[in-house]
Simulated assay, not measured.
Amino acid sequence: MTLTLDNPASVAAPFGDRFSHVARLDLPGGGALLVLSGQVGVDDQGAVVAPGDVRAQSERIFDLIGGLLAAHGATFADVLHVRTFMTDLGLLPGYGEVRERYFPHVKPASTTVEVSRLFLAGAVLEVEVTAALITG
Rank of each mutant, 00 (worst) to 15 (best):
3 L>Q: 11
6 D>P: 02
9 A>P: 00
10 S>D: 04
12 A>N: 06
12 A>C: 00
13 A>L: 09
14 P>H: 02
14 P>Y: 01
16 G>E: 10
17 D>A: 10
18 R>I: 08
18 R>W: 13
21 H>D: 08
21 H>A: 08
22 V>K: 05
23 A>L: 15
24 R>S: 14
24 R>F: 12
26 D>C: 05
29 G>H: 02
30 G>N: 13
30 G>T: 15
31 G>K: 03
32 A>S: 06
32 A>N: 04
34 L>N: 03
34 L>W: 03
35 V>E: 15
35 V>C: 15
37 S>H: 10
39 Q>R: 10
41 G>I: 06
44 D>A: 02
44 D>E: 02
46 G>A: 02
47 A>M: 07
48 V>N: 10
50 A>S: 15
50 A>D: 07
51 P>S: 13
51 P>D: 10
52 G>A: 12
53 D>H: 11
53 D>R: 11
54 V>G: 13
61 I>M: 11
61 I>S: 10
68 L>G: 15
70 A>C: 05
74 A>S: 13
74 A>F: 00
75 T>D: 14
77 A>F: 02
77 A>K: 04
78 D>E: 11
78 D>M: 10
80 L>N: 07
80 L>P: 00
82 V>P: 10
85 F>W: 12
87 T>E: 09
90 G>K: 15
92 L>W: 07
93 P>Y: 08
93 P>S: 07
95 Y>W: 12
96 G>P: 00
98 V>I: 15
98 V>N: 07
100 E>F: 07
101 R>S: 12
103 F>M: 10
103 F>A: 05
109 A>P: 01
109 A>V: 04
109 A>W: 02
111 T>I: 05
112 T>P: 01
113 V>N: 04
114 E>T: 12
115 V>H: 03
116 S>T: 10
118 L>E: 05
118 L>D: 06
120 L>Y: 11
120 L>I: 07
122 G>Y: 01
124 V>L: 03
126 E>P: 00
126 E>G: 00
129 V>W: 14
131 A>F: 09
131 A>C: 06
131 A>Y: 09
133 L>E: 03
135 T>I: 04
135 T>W: 00
